[in-house]
Computed example of a mutant assay.
Amino acid sequence: MTQIPRSALILGLAGVIPFAWGALTLLAPALAGWGQQTLGPRFIGPYVQLYYGAIILSFMSGVLWGFATKAEDSRAATGYALSVIPALWAFFMTGGGPTSAAINLMTGFAGLLILDFAFWRWGLAPGWWMQLRVLLTALVVLCLAVGPIF
């Protein structure tokens, strides 16, 4: 495996901030109060996590679509079809309340990791891709798990 480019690692970790912020505001009521007063209620707790999580799953669909453009023959069609799954998952599975939405997002991110592996295995993703994706997925799922637990 090759080393994750510094910019990809930094930007990937920065993308975890809204998930971590949401988890912290669930764990620290004083922080939640400050966040609600300063940023508004949509930017604390499960609200920020769930909204942002749906956006990120949709974004990752676009990333996978980009990988699919490098494929040929039937693998390209398969890649395009698989690439839309995360966005559709986010669209259909994030309703029904914060607990079920968080669980569905955790499932969606776990499923995305499987798709990441497939695209990586097919040689469509960079050599360092899975190192980055495993790290980010673990952090995101851990942060999302705080909601259903508390």
Results as ranks from 00 to 15, higher is better:
I103S: 02
L57F: 07
N104V: 03
A101G: 09
R75V: 07
T78P: 02
E72F: 10
D73M: 05
Y47D: 15
V63D: 05
F109N: 02
S83M: 08
S74T: 08
P86N: 08
W129Y: 15
G96R: 08
V48H: 13
L57Y: 11
L82T: 04
A102P: 00
E72N: 06
T99I: 12
G79M: 07
W122P: 04
S83T: 01
W129E: 07
F109V: 05
N104G: 08
L88D: 07
M60C: 08
L124P: 01
Q49S: 11
Y51P: 00
S100D: 15
A102E: 04
K70W: 06
L50N: 09
V84G: 03
L57P: 10
E72A: 15
P98D: 09
W89R: 03
G79A: 13
L50P: 01
S58C: 13
I56F: 10
P46K: 06
I56R: 00
F91W: 15
N104D: 05
A110Y: 02
A102V: 07
M106W: 09
S61T: 14
A71I: 02
G96M: 01
L115V: 12
A125N: 02
W129H: 13
Q131F: 11
G97C: 03
A118T: 12
A118F: 13
R75H: 04
A71Q: 04
L132F: 09
G123S: 11
I85H: 14
V84Y: 03
F91E: 15
P98N: 12
I114S: 15
M93D: 07
Y80E: 05
W89N: 03
R75A: 14
V84W: 03
W128I: 12
F117M: 14
L57E: 05
G62Y: 13
G95S: 15
A102F: 02
R121G: 10
S58G: 10
Y52I: 15
A81V: 13
Y52S: 02
A68S: 07
M130W: 04
G97S: 08
A68H: 01
T94W: 04
D116G: 12
Y80V: 08
N104A: 06
A110L: 11
W89G: 05
F117C: 14
F119Y: 14
T69A: 13
G79C: 11
D116V: 04
P126K: 10
V84K: 00
L124D: 07
P86C: 13
L132E: 00
I85T: 13
F119C: 06
Q49V: 11
G123F: 11
L124Q: 08
M106A: 08
R121C: 05
V48M: 14
I85P: 08
F109H: 00
T69H: 09
E72K: 10
T99V: 13
M93K: 09
Y52K: 07
M60F: 13
W89T: 05
V63E: 04
S61A: 11
S83R: 02
F92P: 00
Q49H: 02
I55E: 15
M93E: 11
A110W: 06
A110M: 07
G53H: 04
A125E: 12
A110N: 06
W120L: 13
W122E: 01
K70M: 14
F92V: 04
G53S: 12
W65R: 00
G111R: 15
G95N: 08
M93F: 15
Y47P: 10
L124F: 12
L50G: 05
L113F: 05
S58D: 01
P86Y: 04
V48K: 14
D116P: 05
